[in-house]
Design a protein around this nucleic acid. Structure first.
Lengths: 194, 194
DNA sequence: GCTACTTTTTGATAAATGTCACATAATGAA
DNA sequence: TTCATTATGTGACATTTATCAAAAAGTAGC
C-alpha cells in the first residue's frame, strides 16, 4: 500500500511541474487509474488495437515500434521512468494503432484509460493546462528527432544520441537503437567501432 | 472592416472544431490579437529571436527552416491557409529560436503574442482544451514526418508527399522541398524524372 | 559448465544518395 | 524584350549506407 502511494507521488511530481494540481484532481486521478505490472518483453499494445490507455512509467522501460512494409521492426521511441507512453497517432485520433508498445524490462505503470482521461479533462478544466504542456514537451522531442533524421549523417545522429541520451545506450539493445536512428544494425556497429 | 471580420471567422472556424469557443473568448481573442500582412520572402522570425507570436494564416504560405552547420537552409515545415505557425521549440520553451520563419507568398496573418495567449489560457481555462487538441494534431503530423524519414527511401518519401500533400508541389519551390524530404536538390530532380 | 539461441560484429559487394561542375530553364526587374 | 539572377536538371564520380552471408560474442536455461 505504501508503495502505491509513492507511485502516485512520482506521477504528481511530474504533473505538478506543468501546472496547478489541486488535491481533488489528485484524488480523481488516483481513483480513475490503476497500477499495472508487466514482465519484460510483454505487449501493452499491438497493431490494430486502439491505444486507449496512457501509461506513466513508475519503473522499467518500453519501446514503441511498428512493422515496415517488409515486416521489419522500426523503433520510434524509447521511454523510461517518469515518462508517459502512448501510441501518439492512435491515442490522439482514437483510430487503430499501427504501432506496438512493448516493455524492454520488467516494468510498473500507472495506467489511465482514455475515457477516464477525457472525463478528467472535462471535469477539471485546469488539467488541460497540464495536458497541453506535456504534449508540447513531447512534441519538441519529436521534432528534434525529425530534424536529426533530416540533416545529420548516421554517425552524427549516433553521436547526438550519445550526448543527449547516454542512458539509452545502457538499457536498450543496439539492434533496437539502429532503427530508431534510421540505419541498419551493421552500420551502427561500424560507426561504434570508430 | 468587413474583411477583418471574415479573417476572425476563419480562425474561429478552425478553433471551434477543437472545442467550445464561447463568445466572450472570441471577443478576447479578437481584442488581444491583430491582423498583419507580409510580402513574399519576408521574415516573421529570425534565428536568435524569441518566437513570441503565434500566427494563424488567413492567406498565403510560410516555410520554417534553420541553417545547418554548413550554413545550408533546411526546411522543416510548410504551412498554408488556416494553419498555425510558430517555431515550436522557441515558442514552447521561450528560448531563442534556431529557426527562421519566412513567407513564401504575400500573406495575411492573425498574430497573437505569447503573453496574450498565456493570458487567454489562464482566464479562459477551456481554451486549454483547444490548445491541447491543436498541439496534438500538429504533433501527429510531425511524427508522420519523422517516421517517413526513418524508414522510407528518398523516392518513397517523395511519393508519399505527392500523395498526401500534392498542393505543396504547386506552391513550394523544389529546392525547398528537397531539404524538407532530407535529400539533395539533385536527388530530388532525378527522382522526379522517373 | 555446456548447449541453444540471440545479438553484435565483420567482410565483400551493391545500391542509394551526395557532391561538384556546368548546362538549361524559368523568373523578375528595368 | 533583354539582361541578370535564380531555380532546376544532368553527367561524372565519390561517399555513405544497405544487403547478404557468416563469424564471433554474449545470454539464458539446464
Amino acid at each position: 500500500m505504501m508503495k502505491e502511494i509513492n507511485c502516485y507521488e512520482q506521477l504528481f511530481h511530474v504533473f505538478s511541474k506543468m501546472g496547478r494540481l489541486p488535491v481533488l484532481l489528485k484524488e480523481a486521478i488516483t481513483e480513475n487509474s490503476k497500477i499495472v505490472s508487466f514482465k519484460k518483453n510483454e505487449r501493452l499494445l499491438s497493431e490494430g488495437e486502439k491505444s486507449d490507455s496512457i501509461y506513466f512509467i513508475i519503473s522499467g522501460a518500453v519501446r514503441v515500434f511498428y512493422l515496415n512494409k517488409e515486416g521489419i521492426e522500426t523503433n520510434t521511441w524509447f521511454l523510461f521512468e517518469n515518462e508517459l507512453v502512448i501510441s501518439v497517432f492512435s491515442f490522439f485520433t482514437s483510430q487503430p494503432s499501427f504501432e506496438y508498445i512493448e516493455t524492454l524490462e520488467d516494468s510498473v505503470f500507472i495506467a489511465l484509460k482514455k475515457d477516464k482521461l477525457d472525463w478528467l479533462y472535462e471535469h477539471f478544466v485546469e488539467f488541460n493546462i497540464i495536458g497541453r504542456r506535456l504534449t508540447e514537451l513531447y512534441y519538441i522531442r519529436n521534432e528534434a528527432q525529425a530534424n536529426a533524421l533530416r540533416m545529420l549523417s548516421a554517425k552524427e545522429r549516433y553521436d547526438l544520441l550519445l550526448q543527449t541520451q547516454p542512458h539509452l545506450l545502457q538499457r536498450v539493445a543496439l539492434g533496437h537503437i539502429a532503427s530508431y536512428l534510421g540505419i541498419s544494425r551493421e552500420t551502427l556497429s561500424r560507426i561504434r567501432k570508430k
